[in-house]
């Protein structure tokens, strides 16, 4: 079972690394969207600082959302998803491997580039750890919940808008606590409460979302 997890993870990573430009797209999107705000609102450090947590978090959320398609769409189209569902390994574990690969390829880069965006948005240095840790705990949840949404819409043609319609409301708690952690950290206060909440949601999502995704795939992707 673990070897299946490991092999699927490696396969997904290898496949993705074969087309690195596609890999960079969500990241570029993230940076691009964040840099639109100073242009649209105001470039003064005070204004930027005030909206920084929200802007960075909303952009991260949209960036993950746009990359979700990659999770199952290709596998659905070329038939390898059917193979996965026929495999004797629990589908949950395989789903978990795919989601983990997705997070390593999209969520983790977002976390790594976040300090740069913090700089863009004049987030003070002492709030950067909160930004990084909130994204580190929050982005896996975005991938996990997103996986449910993708698996429900995988057979729908042009399901992009539909996907955001069903996934975005479910992202709201993560957005609230993630952005608030950064906000509070900028004021120099403790953020352990917010991070603990994100951790708890992550634990919950880790245990339930793969199950829901597996059930959803059996419903929608069966041919």
């Amino acid at each position: 079972m673990l070897t299946a997890f490991y092999h699927l993870l490696l396969r997904d990573l290898r496949l993705a690394l074969r087309s690195p430009h596609e890999l960079a797209n969500p990241l570029i999107f993230f940076v691009l969207v964040v840099s639109l705000f100073p242009l649209a609102v105001s470039p003064t450090p005070d204004a930027l600082r005030q909206m920084a947590p929200g802007v960075i978090w909303v952009s991260a959320l949209l960036s993950v959302l746009l990359s979700l398609d990659r999770l199952f769409k290709q596998d659905y189209e070329d038939g390898s998803l059917d193979q996965l569902m026929l495999s004797p390994n629990p589908l949950m574990i395989l789903v978990l491997a795919k989601v983990f690969a997705h997070w390593l390829l999209t969520g983790l880069p977002l976390v790594l580039i976040a300090p740069l965006l913090g700089l863009f948005m004049s987030v003070p240095n002492h709030a950067l750890p909160a930004l990084i840790f909130s994204l580190l705990l929050g982005t896996p949840v975005l991938s996990l919940i997103g996986a449910i949404g993708v698996s429900l819409t995988v057979a729908v043609n042009r399901g992009g808008v539909l996907l955001s319609l069903i996934v975005l409301p479910l992202y709201i708690p993560i957005l609230i606590f993630g952005a608030n952690a950064v906000d509070v950290a900028m004021d120099g206060m403790r953020v352990s409460g917010q991070l603990l909440f994100l951790g708890a949601v992550l634990a919950l999502a880790l245990s339930l979302a793969p199950l829901a995704t597996a059930v959803a795939l059996r419903i929608t992707a069966a041919r």
Binding site: I148, A212, T220
Partner: peptide
């Protein structure tokens, strides 16, 4: 599919 979404919701 929509039933599962309702449960997740």
């Amino acid at each position: 599919a929509s039933g599962l979404l309702a449960i997740v919701g």
